[in-house]
Simulated assay, not measured.
Amino acid sequence: MPEARSPMEAFANSVLGMIDGPITWFKESIVEPNQQKYPWYHEKFRRVPTIDQCYTDDAVCRFEADQQFRRDRMVDNEVLNVLRQRFEDCVLYESPDHMVKCRPVLDDLEKAQENWFIKYGDLGAYANAKSCYMKQKHRLIWERRHGPVGTGMKTSEEEHH
């Protein structure tokens, strides 16, 4: 530390040293050795029970399931964004014959979009885990009765044959 230019500066440095010294010691010798080191973008949240594993009167479990649902939806949105960006980069790089060379990237993007829409489509911005679970249940019931979605409804004559 440079030498103080005045008695007041020397006094201020000594007072700050008395205050800062123990705080710095505590941080360097106790806090930092016990901290888990990881980049913020690799934080791992524990998986919580899904909405179908929660009791109907367990508000905390339902809240945690909703938060997990929102995190999963954000991750799925980012996956779509990355795939979309890869396709756009491929089109820019491979033009003019990009439809041949970028076909695998486009196929991956379209499959991911289809899967995203199957899970989250038509739920709206304020969807929660329960509404998503009900959508999944209704889709499974539909497919059991009528076959894959998009193939049309079976008529009663087709069901008997």
Rank of each mutant, 00 (worst) to 15 (best):
Asn77Gln: 01
Ala59Lys: 11
Arg70Asp: 03
Asp108Ala: 11
Lys154His: 07
Lys137Met: 12
Ala112Val: 05
Glu9Trp: 05
Ala127Lys: 09
Thr56Trp: 01
Ala12Glu: 01
Val82Pro: 03
Pro49Phe: 09
Arg71Gln: 05
Lys44Gln: 15
Ala129Cys: 09
Ala59Phe: 15
Ile118Thr: 14
Asp66Thr: 05
Leu83Lys: 08
Arg103Ser: 10
Gly147Phe: 00
Trp116Val: 00
Gln53Ser: 13
Met153Leu: 14
Gln36Ile: 15
Glu157Met: 10
Met99Asp: 06
Gly152Cys: 06
Glu114Cys: 05
Met99Lys: 13
Trp142Arg: 10
Ala112Phe: 05
Phe63Asn: 06
Gln36Leu: 14
Ile23Phe: 09
His160Leu: 15
Arg71His: 00
Glu157Lys: 13
Ser131Phe: 00
Pro39His: 12
Ala127Met: 01
Ser156Gln: 07
Arg62Glu: 03
Met1Arg: 00
Val100Thr: 15
Arg103His: 13
Arg70Ser: 10
Ala59Glu: 14
Ala65Met: 02
Gln36Ala: 14
Lys37Cys: 06
Gln85Ile: 05
Ala125Asn: 04
Lys101Val: 14
Val105Tyr: 08
Ala4His: 02
Arg71Phe: 01
Gly21Lys: 01
Ser14Thr: 13
Phe11Tyr: 08
Val149Cys: 04
Cys90Asn: 02
Gly17Asp: 08
Trp116Gly: 02
Leu16Ala: 14
Trp116Gln: 07
Leu106Arg: 11
Asp122Tyr: 02
Gly150Trp: 00
Trp25Pro: 00
Ser6Thr: 09
Ile30Glu: 12
Phe45Trp: 11
Ser29Cys: 14
Val100Trp: 08
Tyr133Met: 12
Asn81Glu: 07
Lys154Val: 06
Gly147Arg: 11
Ile19Asn: 02
